[in-house]
Design a protein around this nucleic acid. Structure first.
Lengths: 239, 239
DNA sequence: CGTGGATTTGATGTCAGTCAAGATTGGTGG
DNA sequence: CCACCAATCTTGACTGACATCAAATCCACG
């Protein structure tokens, strides 16, 4: 559960010029700093305190692996609030007054950026403020979809749309076919979708038997048609 | 369904110096503008397009009544994503690629602020950026709680916590007792909590019979102990 | 007062949770 | 390379919470 900071030069890893996306954009604001970003190597299950970004200016950028923000109910069950994959900034989402944390769902590499020393500068920097806004707006957009899914979609629809979403975000195309390696367990999926692991397993079996996805192992799957997958389930347009 | 703009001077209504909170703070950034904010009188059920604030700088501040952002499933069911009461800025939350809108749950007065003309100024204004950040961060915080509740709390717990939350936000204290007038129907509550109207009604009956809240009418209730109300239900700490 | 929407309550069905037992899988050490 | 082990995954039987359908009752408003 205890992650270990890395001593390698973080700039070379974090702010590589060829990187794109919000994560890279954010990292570049750290370049003028004396203190360079911390690179953390996380193992599956490692937990870090949430960076609220409410009074500090600290952010985490995922370089590799899959990372989540999660919260716990009073009786100890877990709900995953958002996922962050490579080159994404972990969305600073956390409910007030509830235990919550950032957790590695797979082995992961996370770049931790503290822009506090540049706070005065950045407060008047239009580019930084636009980046910050994009991070928050993107998080709200995904949170909105999560609320809709948890409130109104049945389990089958949630799982199908989740797989389609993950295929878009993490999938690779080989020989013109979409492949997805799920970097998380059935329980992680369940805690994301407000279900339990057995239910997720059952639904995945149904998806497999319907031929909408093929599993070469429990975590490796082939998606012939992402749209068809996203439509699988009662709430989607079945026709 | 068609709201009508108001011709009264909006400045006098929107930017009164004695007003506090994010809504008032935001309105003050509109004071230097030629074009004054639009004041809209909404009836229950009126719908407006979401203001994404992603490429424009438009916001809505609730002056009176209760307003929500909502989204619809492909088969037409509704999920309420966030609520906005008096002096609150409606959180710009909406999932991508899904029909969504801003809707008045009761008769409401909404102040619509377009800061687009000051975009250049405001991009470098630390106070404005801090306000914008607070709006987004507050929305993410509430969205996080909504996700946790929808994913992991049972219906009873959701309703009880919802009532406690609304009592905190909208309740009045008379003779040392908390009174709440719910400005929404059972169906609105259901669409907020991912339930249906009948289930909400049943749970409210149980809450009434347990004595945790007293109903003088379906929409007017007395809450002797907000904490006890928030704890009602299996997921809360019953002991 | 009458009317239509909102609310309450009941009967019944279904989806997902719980408990339990095997089957896979991947990692480790011999 | 293979055997073993613990974690993960799958599947089944049963239960329970919430949805659906239906019928009264309440209430606000004309």
């Amino acid at each position: 559960m205890t992650p270990r900071p890395d001593t390698r030069s973080p700039r070379s890893v974090c702010a590589q010029p060829e990187r794109t996306g919000l994560g890279a954009t954010l990292c570049r604001f750290a370049e003028p700093l004396q203190q360079q970003p911390t690179l953390r190597r996380l193992q599956r299950g490692d937990r870090l305190p949430i960076l609220s970004a409410r009074h500090t200016l600290r952010f985490r950028v995922v370089r590799a692996g899959l990372v989540a923000n999660a919260a716990a109910t009073p009786d100890g069950r877990r709900q995953i609030l958002c996922l962050g994959g490579p080159d994404e900034v972990i969305c600073p989402i956390a409910p007030a007054g509830v235990p919550s944390w950032t957790e590695a769902l797979s082995a992961a590499l996370v770049c931790e950026v503290d822009l506090g020393a540049r706070a005065e500068d950045l407060a008047t920097d239009p580019d930084f403020n636009a980046t910050l806004f994009e991070i928050m707006a993107g998080g709200l957009e995904r949170a909105g979809m999560q609320i809709l899914a948890l409130g109104r979609f049945d389990g089958t629809t949630r799982v199908a749309r989740f797989l389609a979403d993950m295929t878009d975000r993490l999938g690779e195309t080989r020989d013109g076919v979409r492949h997805l390696t799920l970097p998380m367990t059935r329980e992680d999926i369940a805690d994301t979708l407000g279900l339990n692991a057995e239910t997720v397993s059952r639904i995945l079996s149904r998806i497999r038997k319907a031929g909408v996805a093929q599993f070469s192992s429990p975590t490796a799957l082939i998606v012939p048609d992402v749209r068809a997958l996203a439509r699988f389930g009662a709430t989607g347009v079945t026709a």
